[in-house]
Write a protein that binds this DNA or RNA. Sequence first.
DNA 1: CATCACACTTGCTTTTCGCAAGTCCGTATG
DNA 2: CATACGGACTTGCGAAAAGCAAGTGTGATG
Lengths: 163, 163
Amino acid sequence: MKQHRRKSDCPVHFGLDVFGDAWTLLIVRDLMFKGRTSYTDFLRAEEGIATNVLADRLLRLEEDGIVAKDSDPARAGGSRYRLTAKGVDLLPIMLEIISWSAKHDPETAADRAFVRRLRTNRQALEFEIRASLLPPRRSVVPTQRTASTRPARREQDTAEVAR
Amino acid sequence: MKQHRRKSDCPVHFGLDVFGDAWTLLIVRDLMFKGRTSYTDFLRAEEGIATNVLADRLLRLEEDGIVAKDSDPARAGGSRYRLTAKGVDLLPIMLEIISWSAKHDPETAADRAFVRRLRTNRQALEFEIRASLLPPRRSVVPTQRTASTRPARREQDTAEVAR
DNA sequence: CATCACACTTGCTTTTCGCAAGTCCGTATG
DNA sequence: CATACGGACTTGCGAAAAGCAAGTGTGATG
């Protein structure tokens, strides 16, 4: 289990403590841009995350209030993950990473039109994506956890409802 | 030695392959905002990076064209690191990380005025910081490396000179 | 030419990752 | 109501990376 190791109150360090690894932001990417929402969806991503690492990162993300998990009554034993408001707030970071990579990676698969919009009309693009992510379409019911199980800090409903 | 493991051409993955770990962006932070430029400067940062990890990350950053190393004739055996243009291009990512952490970390040490400017007048702030970082003030001479030693991809002079 | 600061290396322990296989659990099915 | 099934993990183990402490090399400086 990857541990939190907060060693300062520097905002850069705080961010890295949450998503400073090779996989966390790929899960966020899948939720934000690729419409992937289930455990097996994430496993199918082309980078090939290991199943134990995926389980660990999802738990971390849930504990840190970036994603929330709902059980999906439509499927046997199925769950759906979604970004919380705090998770959606990572969007500007994601967009800047995409912008940087599109500029500096000759082999980038970044969509041309997307990158152009990013440079010419970022506000609107960001607004659109936010709109596509909120509100969380609840055809599903929040997963119950016993007090003993992990996710400590629950997302405040207010944070979710606001905007 | 941390290895590159490029598994797709996704721009998010590309970025994470370069700086997806707990330390790389802290070094960038030190260079970008804290005026730290030497090996021992980086070691002194409050997060306490291990010396072998620091050596590894600096080599990676140099190989990836994010930083460049100059020998400093003013100090015995001293070196200075600086951001290349590609490294300075990480600025928007850093600013968004700071913004996110300032919003979501109750204990954040992020400077109030800085964060306010970030929200109200980002363009100017970014421009200012860029100006403070370029051009690389050369009171020092680029470090020579034999063909056998590491940094493969050298920063193109053009990239440095442009802007 | 001895000393010192700086920039790393080296060796060792602990943690995390990567990979393959196995388990659990809530439906659906017969 | 027993059994199969798909989805969501868990477990075990070897390898890689991180963390820690101590040591080495090298170019000034006295």
